[in-house]
């Protein structure tokens, strides 16, 4: 189940999008997300849709693979649609029993569904084309100004990359401990909520102990390799903007301006 989530997984491919600087991609993704809440009308919708299709095509990630990521939000999607459909006041379209669907409701539901779907698809382009390390590097660089107001940007990004490295290890470990306790007759699925919560103790205690032990070991290993924070640190793969990044920035800003213009004009 945990393995089905495609958000946050890297899909290796040789594409322009893959080669962009992570900072560029972060900026692009940000503008794209904002644009989803700005666009209005058929023209805006067309602009956003075409851009999304264009970017997905450029990224060379199979469309089917992306759609799988949507599975995770199906429930949220359905709830949003239902709420918008039935609870928007306005001119009634269909009426039955206590329910009433309005034109406005239909429109709202449609737009919300599109927004959510596009949001997930668009941001998964970012995560699928950027390795976790690049992503954290990008964030560290992009957020560097925050250092001035004493936010430990380097430490935060180091924590993020370590978390990303250990997530698969801890998932595997959870599976192992679960099996070991099952072999001792434990049950994780049956019973009411309280019983279920209680049955997690034999799983969570060993998991936490293991996580702490690993954290301790890792801290020692990092120290032994001369880690002493971000100061004076060099990089194997420093981020450097290239010409295509400038082009990408220009295109994103252009796109964003376009969506705003469409909103004002139509």
């Amino acid at each position: 189940m945990l393995r089905d989530i495609t958000i946050g997984q890297y899909y290796p491919a040789d594409s322009v999008i893959h080669k962009l600087d992570p900072r560029t991609k972060l900026m692009g993704a940000l503008l794209y997300i904002v644009s989803l809440f700005v666009f209005r009308g058929v023209a805006g919708f067309a602009a956003v849709t075409l851009t999304l299709i264009f970017i997905i095509a450029l990224s060379k990630v199979p469309f089917g693979y992306m759609v799988r990521g949507l599975k995770a939000i199906v429930v949220i999607l359905v709830i949003t649609i239902v709420f918008n459909l039935f609870l928007t006041p306005g001119e009634p379209l269909v009426e039955f029993w206590k329910f009433r669907i309005t034109w406005q409701g239909l429109e709202n539901a449609g737009f919300m569904a599109v927004r959510l779907t596009y949001l997930i698809l668009g941001s998964s382009v970012l995560t699928l084309t950027t390795t976790p390390n690049q992503l954290t590097d990008g964030m560290e660089q992009a957020l560097k100004p925050l250092n001035k107001i004493r936010i430990p940007v380097h430490e935060i990004s180091m924590m993020m990359s370590i978390a990303l490295r250990f997530i698969p290890i801890l998932i595997e470990e959870t599976d192992k401990i679960m099996k070991a306790q099952l072999a001792r007759g434990a049950e994780f699925e049956s019973g009411n909520l309280i019983k279920k919560a209680k049955s997690l103790v034999p799983l969570l205690v060993p998991l936490f102990i293991s996580a702490f032990r690993r954290a301790n070991d890792l801290a020692m290993a990092m120290e032994a390799r001369c880690y002493h924070g971000g100061q004076g640190r060099t990089k194997m793969k420093p981020l450097r903007y290239k010409r295509k990044d400038a082009a990408a920035y220009l295109l994103s800003v252009g796109y964003f301006a376009g969506v705003i213009a469409l909103r004002i004009v139509f």
């Binding site: 192992k176 401990i177 099996k179 070991a180 072999a183 034999p202 060993p206």
Partner: peptide
Amino acid sequence: KKLRGMVGLVFQYPEHQLF
């Protein structure tokens, strides 16, 4: 479930399951 009681399985590094 009863089978798991009759066929006892001790995993690798079993001390990691103590809680």
